[in-house]
């Protein structure tokens, strides 16, 4: 009896391991994302975004795609909904500490609004392979220059 039960349990376990991928359990509620993963993603995204004043999206989008199995397009949209409130909180903190220059901010923002429009238009036309490679090279060069 006990031997049989043990064998059955072992089989169940094996089947479970075969079916279940990572932390997502088959409870019939696959839409609800894993709370612990959300908490970790939130903390890391907020921390980086506050510490570096950027990079929230760079962390949140791949984290949602790979860890929460979100669809790429949906992850991009959801990342904006996440990062906007975090950015507002961090901005208020920076401003109260006196770290603000409205002149630079307005000039860069005007350029950014125009650039965002152009970028969104280009997104559908331009094969971004080369652009991504240039972007990565730029980050590497700028990163090294800022460290040394």
């Amino acid at each position: 009896m006990t031997g049989q039960t043990g064998k059955n349990m072992e089989q169940d376990g094996d089947m479970g391991n075969g079916k279940v991928r990572g932390p997502v359990r088959e409870t019939g509620r696959r839409k609800r994302p894993n709370f612990l993963l959300c908490a970790v993603i939130g903390l890391v995204t907020g921390l980086a975004n506050g510490l570096f004043g950027s990079g929230g999206g760079t962390i949140a989008v791949p984290a949602m795609v790979h860890l929460l199995k979100a669809e790429e397009h949906r992850a991009h949209a959801t990342a904006i909904a996440v990062i906007l409130p975090l950015t507002v909180v961090s901005s208020v903190f920076y401003i109260t500490k006196g770290y603000v220059d409205w002149g630079i901010t307005i000039k860069a923002t005007l350029g950014g609004l125009a650039g965002g429009y152009i970028g969104a238009k280009l997104l559908n036309r331009c094969p971004d392979k080369l652009l991504r490679r240039i972007f990565a090279a730029f980050m590497a060069a700028a990163g090294l220059k800022m460290i040394f």
């Binding site: 903390l43 980086a48 510490l51 909904a81 409130p85 975090l86 909180v89 961090s90 903190f93």
Partner: peptide, 13 residues
């Protein structure tokens, strides 16, 4: 993500 993100944002800033 936002709830925990806000805590992270304050800590990071």
């Amino acid at each position: 993500i936002i709830i925990f993100g806000l805590a992270g944002a304050l800590a990071g800033s």
